[in-house]
Nucleic acid binder design. Sequence first.
DNA 1: ATCAATCCCTATCAATTTACTATGGTATAT
DNA 2: ATATACCATAGTAAATTGATAGGGATTGAT
Lengths: 132, 132
Amino acid sequence: MKLSSKGRYGLKAMCELATHYGEGALSLPQIAASTGLSEKYLEQLLTALRKDGLVKASRGASGGYYLTAPPDEITVGSVLRCLENGLKIVDCIDGECCNAAGCSTRGVWEKLYRAINECLDGMTLAKLTEEQ
Amino acid sequence: MKLSSKGRYGLKAMCELATHYGEGALSLPQIAASTGLSEKYLEQLLTALRKDGLVKASRGASGGYYLTAPPDEITVGSVLRCLENGLKIVDCIDGECCNAAGCSTRGVWEKLYRAINECLDGMTLAKLTEEQ
DNA sequence: ATCAATCCCTATCAATTTACTATGGTATAT
DNA sequence: ATATACCATAGTAAATTGATAGGGATTGAT
């Protein structure tokens, strides 16, 4: 059970956007430079975040990405759910369970899923940038 | 961020041992039959659990595996930490952090790590078999 | 003491996932 | 007009995972 690079890097990028919130759009090369990622890889992450409505993009010269809400209204959970396949730690979180015999391990996954989401939804981007 | 088969199947096997606690050892073929796993694969899981002191093995005819403690003293957390590489969701949980610039995402991982462990350590094998 | 049943160890391998690169196109503000 | 930015699709090497296989070594029951 490991977090993927998408989640780790994506959250960093979102923090970068959070620290510059209200200053207009941040271009892809700018974010790439401050996070140390390649532009093309970062682009994939931002596209996913955009499709989930967490960021918006303005095109053309001096365009770039910016948060769709103030940093204190964007939770870490919403960012990671976007980049970590809904934070589904097992396949049967929402579907039917494959539990035929044996004991009910399903309850474990459901409780763990809830704990993870509650923990991450209790943190906002604003809190992270404040701590820095 | 997904749980591996080792964790999922290993917990099932431990539940199987829990339901037969006090009845002597359960042989590998017996556990394999009730969980639907191959004997050889299950063997790897049980070896890991044995090295962590969660189960013991008795050899020879009519031997097998059994829990080293009553089911209400074995937490789900201890089982999954054994099979999921200590539940370390990122590499820098215990070591130094690679955070040079940007924001402190490290605090997120530490809080999440704690939340996961607290959740899983709040559940015992006894609870799971009761619910069944 | 023997022997059959069990646990123990190491290596291997295919499938999947992940992380990242590459190419080219399309829209837009200056 | 054009440079600058975003958008979309493929492809690929490395790492991880999930599982299989074979052959010991040890022990308890007879």
